[in-house]
Write a protein that binds this DNA or RNA. Structure first.
Ligand code: FES
Ligand code: FES
Lengths: 153, 153
DNA sequence: TTTTATCTTGAGTAAAATACTCGGTTTTAA
DNA sequence: TTAAAACCGAGTATTTTACTCAAGATAAAA
């Protein structure tokens, strides 16, 4: 029940861009450094994010990446779907092309995965990048107190 | 964001045992047939379920498996954890041994995964095998109407 | 115009995880 | 005694993950 590092790194990168939203393009290199992601790996992720229209890129010197729209209009769900494909704990409840077992009689368990999927998507779709920036701002002001508390896990 | 087939098959198998709860031990072979799981693969899964104390086994002729306790006291979360390990969409929010990134400053994204994890565990822990049996019973009585509706996905 | 910073593309790959299979051993009810 | 089961350990093909690398395209700046 694990996300790959694509979603993990990807959300970090998008959050980084969100925090720099409104200024000049941000270079992949600087994102990679701040977020401690391999530069060449992040290249691939950014390519996916660009292809799905979540970021815009500018080539050449002074180039870089910016969010394709306001942080408030990009959700964590958008990012995860761009990098990991449709959300589905198991094949038969895939968001896009669900496949069914042969024997419907024995598919009661499917309702479990359906509920799990809807739980996940509900949460991911309810969080946008502006929320995260706001939270970061709060953490910065309270001297990270709040964040430390979260780290009890 | 996908479960492996272990959790998928495992829940099916446990549901099968739950439906036969109270009678004689059920052979692995018959579970495998009904649920269309490879017999030798299911062997491994049952071994894991036995080691975590969710099922009891009886060897020899007329042997088989039974649930180790009432269906109402076994949750989907128990089954998934037994087969896939602690639930964690990303490493740093692992239920058991969370690892943190080096830079707490950039860990706002962690709160997302934390919420996702709690969403998943909340759902999985709230569903027990007796619930599923009840649902199956309902489906059987209403001629599967309800189940078909769910399959719109 | 040349240089340099940057994105872009495609190919390649090592390691891990997945989803199994198989053959043999042990146990136990009939 | 026999046959039906669980048990065990090893092996393996395939897929996925998590990268790396090198060459090319583009555009701003010198
Ligand atoms: S449709 Fe997937 S469990 Fe049956
Ligand atoms: S602790 Fe995992 S994203 Fe920072």
């Amino acid at each position: 029940m694990r996300l790959s590092t694509r979603g993990y790194y990807g959300l970090k990168a998008m959050f980084d861009l969100a925090q720099n939203y409104g200024s000049h393009p941000i270079t992949l290199k600087s994102v990679a450094e701040r977020q401690r992601i391999s530069e060449s790996y992040l290249e691939q992720l950014m390519a996916m994010l660009r292809k799905t229209g979540l970021v815009k890129s500018f080539r050449g010197a002074q180039g870089g990446y910016i969010l394709a729209r306001e942080p408030a209009r990009i959700t964590a769900g958008d990012v995860v779907r761009a990098l990991e494909g449709p959300i589905a704990p198991v094949y038969c409840v895939n968001e896009e092309e669900p496949r069914e077992c042969d024997e419907v009689d024995y598919c009661i368990t499917r309702t479990v995965w359906l509920r799990v999927r809807d739980g996940i998507t509900g949460i991911l779709d309810s969080i946008n990048l502006a929320d995260l920036c706001l939270e970061a701002e709060k953490v910065r002001q309270t001297g990270r107190g709040e964040h430390i508390k979260l780290n009890k896990y």
